[in-house]
């Protein structure tokens, strides 16, 4: 039946939307202790095209999981509209759709196999013979830099590694939308790099990927687009670089033995600067049209007579951008 449905499914043209959510509202509501009720997701507008990889970063993991479940047709939504691959959404929820591959903690893997064997096992129904199929899978493991997982029994993999193995199966499928709901997981650099490669495979063949995660570093590495989901609303979204450059205004990080004194001196010398103290660090935020340069900062330090232990030019990250948004700055 799945095969029949797959055959009936016509591939959309390259410019089509994979997901079109308009004013999407969840059925679920928050019930606060004072008796007040509030809808969990409100007015979500999200458009994902072919070839895009979106990361939804939320400070409340439940909210991003809920959004991804709604988009993946696992849960019904309240109001608004959500269209999957320009074909609407099935009324019957939780049905496995050939064009949507949903990965979450709820998908468990058999523990009595290693990664390579598992990938061979799930692809055993394909018409490709075992030998060339194994070659394809090994190539995938090598190209994604996840080859170190090849012969590791699944029972010894971490939850993040298991999720990556699941994503590998998704990259072997023909699904147009891969939903990767991993809000509670933390990915190291190597895994993030592997996920990036797998996401490239999915997007390069005309599919799209939607990641729900609290791991900003992974989202920054993997995704082409990012969206911040705060208090049930998508507050900021766009290309990752744009989001970072627009929201991450931190210019310099200074280390000092007396950070409070340094901050006060810098603020007094240049009132236009936003100076904040985080432990032994002093962070300089600069929202002016012409940001402060290293030379100007050194001149400022000479002027104040303060000494610093280290001075570092801040690189823009999605994590900082998200922190900025969460802490209410730059809104």
């Amino acid at each position: 039946m799945v095969r029949r449905r797959r055959a009936a499914f016509l591939p959309p043209n390259p410019k089509t939307y994979i997901v079109q959510a308009t004013k999407l509202t969840s059925k679920e509501v928050y019930a606060y202790p004072d008796g007040r009720k509030e809808t969990v997701l409100r007015g979500i507008n999200l458009e994902i095209r072919r070839g895009e990889c979106w990361g939804i970063v939320s400070n409340e993991p439940f909210e991003s999981e809920l959004l991804l479940e709604i988009v993946g047709s696992v849960r019904p939504y309240g109001e608004g509209r959500c269209i999957l691959v320009e074909r609407g959404m099935m009324r019957r929820k939780r049905a496995i759709l050939p064009h949507v591959f949903f990965i979450s903690d709820g998908v468990s893997l058999p523990t009595n196999m290693n990664t390579l064997e598992y990938l061979m096992y799930v692809t055993s129904h394909s018409k490709l013979a075992a030998q060339p199929r194994q070659a394809v899978i090994l190539k995938l493991l090598l190209s994604s830099n996840l080859y170190y997982l090849t012969l590791v029994p699944i029972k010894y993999l971490s939850r993040a590694e298991k999720a990556a193995v699941c994503l590998m199966t998704a990259s072997l499928s023909g699904a147009l939308l891969v939903i990767f709901s991993v809000a509670g997981l933390k990915f190291d650099e190597r895994l993030s790099g592997g996920i990036r490669k797998l996401s490239d495979i999915i997007t390069n063949r005309g599919g799209a990927m939607l990641i729900g995660s609290g791991d900003c570093d992974m989202v920054q590495t993997v995704c082409s687009h990012a969206a911040f989901l705060l208090d049930g609303e998508l507050t900021h979204h766009g290309a990752v670089n744009e989001v970072m450059s627009y929201l991450d205004k931190r210019a310099f990080i200074l280390r000092s033995r007396n950070p409070q004194r340094l901050a006060t001196a810098l603020q007094a010398a240049e009132p236009a600067l936003d100076v904040r103290v985080y432990g032994e660090e002093v962070h300089l935020y600069d929202d002016r049209s012409e940001p402060i340069t290293e030379a100007e900062l050194l001149a400022l330090l000479l002027h104040t007579g303060e000494t610093v232990e280290s001075l570092q030019k801040s690189t823009k990250t999605l994590g900082n951008a998200f922190k900025e948004v969460v802490s209410g700055h730059d809104l």
Partner: peptide, 18 residues
């Protein structure tokens, strides 16, 4: 019970008839 734990999910996605 493995069906309930979605252990067949990837198999069905990759074309195994349920």
């Amino acid at each position: 019970i493995e069906v309930m734990h979605n252990r067949w999910y990837t198999l069905v996605q990759l074309g195994y008839p349920p």
